[in-house]
């Protein structure tokens, strides 16, 4: 488990990191928590020539309340997000999801920005960010821009990031106490990544669902917003029948993944089961 030789640079600002990315292109990789990158390097699946360490950049770490949204620094660890009072109150789907990632050691090192940049199709964050209707703020050679979480994930280990762009922060709309959230996950027994992860954020008036955002991870080669389930919930009084009817629409028309642990057929089935579980948990 020895990686190929590489150079290491500890960046002191995002601008510096962007400059290095621009200079080195594909040969450079951003290092934050290292929990996806380092194992890949040790297995020599990834052999960057330069690591640009952004973990020391203070600007990337805080969680800020900007009125209508929370701005979560890209280098915030899963653990910091799970235990943040602001996130638990104003964007609870993120805190709920963070608590299911890996184990304590991983949550204390791995970062949200690192995870979404890596874009593992079975990672937990993508479903939560899509359900939360978050946007991703990035900075690159071409300046700063934001990308909707729904558009960010483009394939297996693939995102809308340009080669020289660094994730700066995740912007998450704050939700009021009329919103309810849940993340239900059927995990792969070895890696504990999601075979199916379903994130649900709904605005409720008693039993009536005003609006709903349902998103999946693990089911296909990238996380996705499930339009059909979401619209089947919105504008309905939620009861056994309406919940089951909505869940039955889960992951329709999606190219489902199949592997040693879960065939395509089983994943499709689990998507329905976990949609129902997430919805029920949200309103429990």
């Amino acid at each position: 488990m020895i990686p190929a030789a590489f150079d290491y640079h500890k960046a002191t600002s995002v601008a510096e990191a962007v400059g290095l990315l621009k200079e080195h292109g594909m040969d450079a990789k951003i290092l934050a928590g290292g929990h996806s990158l380092i194992p890949a390097m040790k297995l020599r699946l990834n052999q960057p020539e330069l690591l640009i360490d952004i973990s020391g950049i203070a600007d990337l770490k805080g969680i800020k309340d900007e009125g209508r949204k929370l701005v979560i620094g890209a280098a915030c660890t899963h653990g910091a997000i799970a235990s943040s009072a602001e996130v638990n109150k104003d964007a609870p789907i993120l805190a709920i999801t963070a608590k299911t990632i890996g184990d304590i050691q991983i949550r204390n090192k791995g970062t949200i920005g690192g995870s979404i940049a890596h874009a593992d199709p079975a990672a937990d964050w993508p479903a939560a960010l899509i359900a939360a209707d978050a946007t991703i703020e990035v900075l690159g050679g071409g300046g700063s821009r934001t990308i909707a979480a729904t558009d960010f994930f483009t394939g297996i280990y693939d995102t809308a990031l340009e080669e020289d762009e660094v994730i700066i922060a995740i912007h998450v709309p704050k939700v009021s106490s009329t919103f309810t959230s849940a993340y239900a996950k059927f995990f792969q027994p070895a890696s504990r990544f999601a075979i199916v992860g379903c994130a649900v954020v709904m605005e409720m008036k008693d039993n009536y669902c005003v609006s709903a955002r349902v998103a999946f991870t693990g089911v296909s080669d990238m996380a996705f917003f499930d339009e059909k389930v979401s619209s089947a919930l919105a504008g309905k009084s939620l009861n056994d029948e309406t919940i089951a009817a909505a869940a039955a629409q889960a992951a329709q028309g999606v190219d489902t993944l199949g592997d040693h642990f879960a065939s395509e057929e089983y994943r499709e089935h689990l998507a329905k089961v976990y949609a129902e579980r997430a919805i029920r948990e949200a309103i429990a």
């Binding site: 297995l43 792969q188 027994p189 070895a190 890696s191 040693h260 642990f261």
Partner: peptide
């Protein structure tokens, strides 16, 4: 959980802890 699973070509499919499921405390 556990299975050292070789496919028909003789490749060990479960050759890392990402795929070889060991029991954990919460199992």
């Amino acid at each position: 959980l556990e299975h050292a699973f070789y496919d028909e070509d003789g490749q060990l499919v479960t050759g890392s802890y990402m795929d070889y499921a060991m029991p954990r405390a919460d199992d």
